[in-house]
């Protein structure tokens, strides 16, 4: 089995090929640097992304609070994460970096990315 990928570790955008030598060993070719190999392996085993969104906010200054996941989240958990975010409503004050939602089972935390005082 093989899979074609485009490396996103730097602007070069190397075209990578991931080949499964056996169930556990994956060989990456097409990369021009070690970061490409690392990216390629993670991308086929467990692709992850940073997710940013906004949540409803009771405040006199802004209507939506921008939020961001702490680190990356497995791609297949993103839909659930977003659906849960869209159901919550916060009230000012909120500090930048404050935890606005926690999914401990998935090891995911969502943090406020703005300070809203009132």
């Amino acid at each position: 089995m093989k899979k074609e990928l485009i490396c996103i570790a730097c602007p070069l955008g190397c075209r990578l090929t991931a080949r499964w030598l056996n169930e556990e060993t994956i060989d990456i070719t097409g990369n021009k640097c070690p970061r490409g190999e690392e990216y390629g392996k993670e991308e086929v085993i467990d692709p992850k992304r940073v997710v940013t969104a906004t949540v409803r906010l009771k405040s006199t200054s802004i209507k939506r609070l921008p939020v961001m996941t702490k680190g990356t989240v497995p791609k297949d958990k993103i839909a659930e994460l977003l659906n849960r975010l869209y159901t919550i409503e916060l009230s000012a004050p909120v500090l930048r970096g404050e935890v606005v939602m926690d999914m401990p089972d998935e090891g995911v935390q969502v943090l406020s990315s703005r300070t809203v005082r009132r």
């Binding site: 940013t52 906004t54 921008p66 939020v67 961001m68 930048r96 990315s113 703005r114 300070t115």
Partner: peptide, 25 residues
């Protein structure tokens, strides 16, 4: 920056990956 809520800001200047609002703040 306030409306650029995605990440990818600040890697050169702050050596961290921030969202637009964080960078602005």
């Amino acid at each position: 920056l306030h409306q650029c809520i995605h990440n990818g800001f600040g890697l050169h200047y702050f050596k961290e990956e921030l969202s637009g609002p964080e960078y602005a703040e």
